[in-house]
Computed example of a mutant assay.
Amino acid sequence: MPALPKAFVVGHPIAHSRSPLIHGHWLAAHGLAGRYERIDVAPEGFADFLRGFAEAGFVGGNVTIPHKEAAFRLVDHLTPRARRIGAVNTLSLDGDGRLHGDNTDAPGFIAHLDASLGAEWPVSTGTAAGRAAVILGAGGAARAIVVGLLDRGLSRILVANRTAERAGALRDLDPERVASVEWEALPDHLAEAGLLVNTTSLGMGSGPPLVLDLSPLPAGAAVADAVYVPLETPLLAAARVRGLAAVDGLGMLLHQAVPGFARWFGVTPRVTPELRALVVADIEGRR
């Protein structure tokens, strides 16, 4: 009798991860007899974990903080998308036992924008007709989101970060379409933005909020926040006051999980209102 497929999420710490809740829901919804587990591995043990997880019966898994960059360096094969982003969040094994690394944050973000704004959103927000997408922050999430927007065909992406050097590093993804801008000059750039995305931790939990005047944004612009705890950040609340489309960060978490589940368990799941409600209840229950 073949062993049940098992997958994992690995990080340090890992107790906070909602990936088991997401994948457990899909396993039950599709009647699949698989398993998905949390595994806490400290950085010094991560390389050994990668070399041994197949022998432990796992077919693949997710990688979260602080291991995404280490996974990028240690896998046997990188997808072009993971290579551009410089980090891996999804692992799988091929028929020869080679370890493949992908990054599904980019398509996860775009899928969430499609679900929230409609598939015509680059046109409806103006970003396909001359307006820019403005990205706040220049960390790993920003890099994945910029890659997603580039792949979607946006012609102008402006990255603002308190540290200009980090923002400039994202320009290397596509020097013709990506530019870095000074944080202090944001009001001028917001006036030409069809999409504003916050990828910083500002607004998360009990930390400091993102203080930003949204009045320069054109009517019809959309505002997205990568933060999903809380779901309604001060930035999104301010966007709604202005009558702008507001896109929370939870959908990116849900949609980025789809490709991995499909690889490991052979079924492509859907992000449904039931799944979202389940994760929202968990978020509220931990507050």
Rank of each mutant, 00 (worst) to 15 (best):
M1Q: 15
P2I: 08
L4K: 10
F8R: 06
H12V: 05
P13Y: 01
R18Q: 14
R18E: 04
P20C: 10
L21G: 11
G24K: 07
L27R: 06
A28C: 13
A28T: 12
L32A: 05
R35I: 02
Y36A: 05
R38Q: 15
V41I: 11
G45M: 04
F49Y: 13
L50T: 06
A56I: 03
F58N: 04
V59W: 01
N62I: 04
T64F: 02
P66F: 04
F72Q: 09
V75F: 03
D76Y: 08
T79I: 02
A82V: 07
I85Y: 01
A87V: 07
V88T: 13
T90L: 00
L91K: 02
L91A: 12
S92N: 12
L93I: 05
R98W: 11
G108C: 09
H112E: 06
H112V: 04
H112C: 02
L117Y: 04
W121K: 13
S124N: 13
A129N: 15
A132C: 11
G139N: 06
G140T: 05
G140R: 08
A141R: 03
A141P: 01
L149C: 15
D151S: 08
G153P: 04
R156I: 14
I157K: 09
I157H: 13
A164V: 15
R171W: 01
D174S: 15
R177A: 11
A179N: 13
S180Q: 11
W183M: 14
W183C: 09
E184R: 13
P187F: 03
P187D: 07
D188I: 04
E192S: 15
L195E: 06
S201Q: 07
S201H: 02
G203F: 00
M204E: 10
M204L: 14
P208R: 15
V211T: 14
A219M: 08
G220N: 05
A222T: 09
V223C: 01
D225S: 00
V227C: 00
Y228G: 02
V229I: 13
L231F: 02
L235V: 06
L236W: 00
L236G: 01
A237F: 03
G243H: 06
A246P: 00
V247P: 00
G251I: 01
M252S: 05
H255D: 07
V258M: 11
V267G: 07
V267M: 10
V271R: 02
R276H: 09
R276A: 14
R276I: 04
L278E: 08
L278D: 08
R286A: 10
